[in-house]
Amino acid sequence: MPESQNQSFKPSFGKELNIESIISAPLVAASKANVMMVTGQTRFLLEYCFTKEDGKTYEPVMIEMSMVRGVIDDSKKPTDPGYIQKAQLTFNIPLLCLVPLNSLAIDKVTVDFDMEITSVTSKESTKKVGENNIMDKKAQLNGKISGGPSGDKNNTQSTSKLKVGINAGPLPLPVGVLAILDLYTKNIQPLPEEKKPESIEE
């Protein structure tokens, strides 16, 4: 809130609002925070994990990994030295695979407050079903966040309570990113060498 940067923010908890506004305000704020985090993460992804070829196509930045594996030498006996030899090979995977993405998303929001219903109004609406007009009357609850007694005995003013708990946790990656990861991880798998056609002896 740029306007409140130089001013102290005074929440008006005593003001009457409709129930939807009271409940939705923290949810909207959490949703906006999530959008900010996801946008930042996407920018990071495109800037550091991809390179832009020809100004059009994004290509993933690849990194090299090494693998060490024991290989049995069939020409030697199990008791011979060097029967199991270490074979090392390298393979490339996208840098994207090593970054713990989506660890920033909000997955749970808990809003805890006591509310006082101060007034009930009604809203009329008319719907046309077939040839008949059906009149609908919806109740609109208005209220304010109720206050609890403050700890100070000399202070008779009550303090309003609105507690918002936010929990951030890993969420599933978007389908598009998963598809990219799947494609590249399949490239890690070694392909069998193509067999040469056997020569036919006449």
Partner: peptide, 26 residues
């Protein structure tokens, strides 16, 4: 299969830099 994987030395600086930027973003 007990095959051991690790990061190649030549890729370490790039991964290090990316992780630092990621922490900064967080």
């Amino acid at each position: 299969c007990q095959a051991a994987i690790g990061l190649s030395d030549q890729s370490k600086p790039l991964v290090q830099e990316t992780m630092e930027k990621f922490e900064e973003l967080k």
